[in-house]
Nucleic acid binder design. Structure first.
Lengths: 210, 210
DNA sequence: GTGAAAGCGCTAACAC
DNA sequence: GTGTTAGCGCTTTCAC
């Protein structure tokens, strides 16, 4: 399956008898192009099915108009909503999403992040707030804006958006006790960071109220 | 928010007193690098937090290791599952997903596709099988493998994976009739392509059985 | 109004 | 085992 070489600015330039510079200026709406040229260039571009190439920009300006999104899992329905929410903001802004998921493994997260960063993404969205040292270092050298979602209890690398599991659990248990419940039980399936955070909130509330 | 310039192969090369060629070979696991050099290069790469840059590859080989996915909507839960399914294949293969959605508008689809193609995605997944002429032309000149999902009734541009709404509706109605139902009613909310296909299946089954 | 040259970071091809 | 050159497609800068 050989990829056909796509038409470039040069191809258009050749056909209209100009240089790619003139074509470039014209296609980007520059006004210093003669009316005659402008028409021929647009006609040829359309005829050739010219599609601009973002790669050179990506190379020279290191900017991709893409945001990397690292999710622990796609199975958990909450992350489908997360994607939807992110898209609702990025799409109107002309940004694309590059997805990766890492199955709750910090090592996979590290690799996926490297991969995402190698595309020069303009920003990264991470879920969870526990990362390997290398992950943190990469975020540092990459120098792109980083947002951690879901957990706001742990101190974020840069910024975090989400909720505090500890506080949420604490509030819930407190409210139950306030309503007169005395035997509140905390049941959890997995002992991951979030579960433990909720347990912390539960324990705090229970101890506080005796 | 100024992006810090990331370390490049040249930066590593300067520090170990070699050329970027040697560094490039070494980091990619080439064996024709002296043991001494190899160690220093890896040490410096780690120290600098070097992250490889895919942009040059993208420019010279026009290959991105990314797949463009065009979805009509993210709100419809079925597409969350679609993403999940696609990811389950692409991720192990080392491919990333670039998402775009177009709100069931062919014009938006056309723009989004151009945008996706400008990243030199290695393949495109489209939902629905009705596209503008320009969309089709772009797919042609881009020359990347294209898969249309959801609808297999319409003749696909290249390949399609999904189900046949006409046939599905036909089968359902037929089965109802076979079980003795005589007053089967088809209710639809929107008159989009899919709805009309189902109606076609319904009508065919009803007429066939009288 | 249009062109020429350089450069973004990396690798393929070719020295030595 | 290591270096040199050239080039991917585009834009920026400077000429004319």
């Amino acid at each position: 399956m050989v990829k056909k070489k796509r038409p470039t600015l040069q191809d258009i330039a050749d056909r209209v008898g100009a240089t790619k510079m003139t074509v470039s200026r014209c296609l980007r709406g520059g006004n210093n192009v003669s009316e005659h040229m402008r028409e021929r260039i647009f006609a040829e571009a359309e005829a050739l099915g010219y599609i601009p190439n973002r790669a050179p920009d990506l190379l020279s300006k290191s900017t991709s108009h893409a945001i990397g999104v690292l999710l622990p899992s796609l199975t958990n329905q909450v992350f489908a909503d997360v994607i939807k929410g992110i898209e609702s903001v990025t799409e109107p802004a002309g940004y694309h999403l590059m997805l990766a998921h890492y199955g709750y493994s910090r090592e996979v997260e590290e690799r996926s992040l490297a991969s995402l960063l190698s595309y020069n993404v303009d920003g990264v969205i991470l879920s969870e707030s526990q990362h390997t040292d290398r992950t943190l270092r990469m975020l540092g050298t990459a120098g792109v804006p980083t947002v951690e979602i879901m957990d706001t209890h742990t101190t974020p690398f840069e910024q975090a958006v989400g909720f505090d599991n500890v506080l949420a659990a604490y509030d819930m248990v407190r409210e139950m006790i306030r309503r007169g419940r005395r035997h509140v039980v905390y049941l959890a399936v997995r002992l991951d960071a979030r579960t433990l955070q909720r347990q912390e909130g539960y324990t705090r509330a229970m101890e506080e109220q005796g």
